[in-house]
């Protein structure tokens, strides 16, 4: 074997320096979080983040997961974790379901005003929930859906992202496949389940990841519609803990940070495990 002496080029060094700096920018706050969850609250209060590692991981974790606040005593970390999962998964499934059906109708059925319908749906991209939050709240309130999972999920589903992605994807599926299925006697329902859904697997997975993370990270809307402690999600619940600065109590930094760490984990895990699906879904055109 011959050994190639690779010359270190300046551009390579610069590229890597930029990438490393970027990575540090991302990872350091997470490392600080990890460090602070290991320290007693008092130390955190006095010195802030430091380089030492304490022994408080287990107590902080227990507090974060099982200790409840407020009056009812039900908004423990596990409860909030469950609520977050329900929000994330419900939102992702709902969005994919509605988006696929809408895109199916728009792409494969000769409707009058189909493109008008599509553009109307498309304009909802310009109106995220934050913009229409007051009327949405009013509607949810009137329907009696405050402090319910439906109230939490449904208004978030109403936007065009999934419809748009699925429309683009369906349009890239060869016309002949549709025609072959027609000749093979597959009606609209059969075609949808037998051909379209299996073909869209990677796309569905990619959408699921994006939508789950998006739903999981929701903050403003859950804060507005959930006032009952049993309905709190993680992202919203963390805020609740650090708010307790009144009186002479020491804020529970360890517990709040641990919750933050727990809140980061599921999206990270999903992205890591489904990364290949994700990339495939958004880039692959082998149909």
């Amino acid at each position: 074997m011959t050994t190639h002496k690779r010359r270190l080029r300046l551009s390579t060094v610069v590229d890597h320096a930029i990438l490393i700096a970027g990575s540090l920018l991302m990872i350091v706050p997470v490392l600080m979080l990890v460090q602070m969850t290991s320290m007693p609250d008092l130390i955190n209060m006095k010195t802030g983040p430091s380089l030492s590692i304490g022994d408080q991981w287990v107590p902080n974790f227990e507090k974060a997961m099982f200790q409840a606040d407020g009056f009812s005593g039900i908004n423990t970390g596990t409860r909030m974790l469950m609520n977050s999962f329900i929000l994330g998964i419900g939102f992702a499934f709902g969005k994919i379901f509605v988006g696929m059906l809408a895109a199916y109708a728009i792409v494969y059925f000769r409707m009058r005003y189909a493109s008008l319908a599509f553009w109307i749906i498309f304009t909802t991209l310009l109106l995220p929930l934050e913009v229409r939050i007051l009327p949405s709240y009013e509607v949810v309130q009137r329907l009696g859906m405050l402090n319910t999972y439906q109230g939490l999920i449904i208004p978030l589903i109403a936007s065009a992202t999934a419809t748009f992605f699925f429309r683009q994807y369906f349009r890239s599926i060869p016309e002949e496949l549709v025609e072959a299925a027609r000749i093979d006697g597959a009606g609209p329902v059969r075609f949808f389940f037998d051909i379209l859904i299996p073909l869209s697997r990677t796309m569905i997975a990619a959408m699921f990841i994006i939508m789950f993370v998006y739903g999981w990270n929701q903050y403003l809307w859950p804060t507005m519609v959930t006032t009952e402690e049993g309905m709190f999600t993680l992202v919203r619940g963390i805020k609740q803990i650090t708010q307790m600065l009144e009186g002479n109590q020491i804020p529970e930094y360890g517990r709040a940070n641990m919750l933050a760490l727990i809140a980061i984990l599921p999206p990270v895990m999903i992205v890591i495990f489904f990364q290949s699906w994700f990339v495939k879904g958004l880039t692959e055109s082998d149909k």
Binding site: P174, E176, L177, E179, A180, A181, R182, I183, D184, G185, A186, I195, P198, L199, R201, D286, K287
Partner: peptide
């Protein structure tokens, strides 16, 4: 009649096989 009811079969230029089956 629908294509399925015409008692025909068709072979396409790009084969149009169902890729997942």
């Amino acid at each position: 009649l629908d294509p399925a009811d015409r008692d025909i079969a068709m072979v396409f230029q790009n084969y149009a096989l169902y890729p997942h089956m």
